[in-house]
Design a protein around this nucleic acid. Structure first.
Lengths: 186, 186
DNA sequence: CCAAACTTAGAGCATTCACTCAAAATAGAG
DNA sequence: CTCTATTTTGAGTGAATGCTCTAAGTTTGG
């Protein structure tokens, strides 16, 4: 299954087109035709490289998350502060991709693989936050750490929600308040 | 424009069908055909009574909000605690309609009238929360009251988000913690 | 019972969507 | 250069979608 250069470049063009469209016109406007038009490709080529439209969208979302992941190589444990900063960067750095993420997550897992994958990612994120909290507060039992992780993520998500509705909302600084208050002793 | 009884009953059946469908299959599954099938009505009748599909969805969402509104008659000012309880009731009482609300809000106002209306409603809600806070804390200036209202709504929304992703999440009690902490002096 | 107003039916329209497929074109290894 | 594997094309499919329109039917007030 040796790839040719042409195919690899086409794949990149398609992902770039998908990323741009998600940013410009949201998930609704990111149709297959729109992706193909922008990438300068016909539908057949798209399906030679991707399983489905959702496949391409999911890759873009995953890339965006990965781009701000503090330690994509899994061996280094991350601090809560780093994780929170990564979340802030994810929301502020690619707001429209983040919007898609939240939207799909809210839509639930009934919609098929896209929702399933994002919810799965979210739950792994909760676990990662909880692990960091557990590491920094050894006196806390696991249940309490998970509860705190959920609250922190709820706050970060809720602030993101407000920001997306009210463009003037100062997301980053409010989110850092969450960081401070959550890092303080109970 | 005197209404006949038949038309009024049909309108109610359509709204009931829409409400049920939003709860059972979400916004995606609530198609015109599904609504009409369940209401036992043809498309023509639907459009005799509603401007568009979004019109019917919007009425359902508005009704749900209104049903838990502490003081629909505007003269009585509401307390912050009442407003928070109303929000909790909105989320827990009709979770799937609330899901639709959050989803449309996140989708933004570019999607047309549905998004516009929900964002408008949201902003009125912020103002109402801020007014209640201002009433209960006369020493606080207006800007601070608005900021606090935004944070409270962000927390409530974020918790709702978590609940929708993790069904085991105990929304009501966590949300009441927001209530307590936000009612405490600064 | 009449007539005007309102309601309903239901076929059908125009559009959009994600996706398929067989054949032509091209790239790359030997 | 040749031969094979990969890539690209682009018309086409079938299934949805929201919505329209006209003719027929029903309700209501007088």
């Amino acid at each position: 299954m040796a790839r040719y250069q042409a195919g690899i470049r086409t794949e990149e063009r398609i992902l770039e087109a998908t990323r741009e469209l998600l940013g410009e016109v949201g998930l609704e406007g990111t149709t297959l035709k729109a992706i193909c038009d922008r990438a300068g490709v016909r539908a057949g080529s798209f399906y030679n490289l991707f399983e489905s439209k959702d496949d391409a969208v999911m890759q873009v979302v995953k890339d965006a998350i990965r781009a701000v992941d503090p330690h994509p190589d899994k061996d280094v444990p991350d601090s809560l502060r780093e994780l929170i900063e990564a979340f802030i960067l994810f929301i502020t750095g690619q707001p429209e991709v983040a919007r898609v993420y939240l939207k799909i997550a809210i839509s639930g897992a009934t919609n098929g693989s896209l929702g399933d994958q994002i919810i799965g990612h979210h739950q792994r994120r909760v676990a990662r936050f909880a692990a960091a909290i557990g590491r920094e507060h050894p006196e806390m039992d696991e249940e309490a750490a998970v509860a705190r992780a959920e609250i922190i993520l709820a706050a970060l998500s809720g602030l993101a929600f407000m920001w997306m509705i009210q463009p003037g909302f100062d997301y980053a600084s409010r989110a850092r308040l969450v960081s401070q208050s959550s890092l303080a002793p109970e």
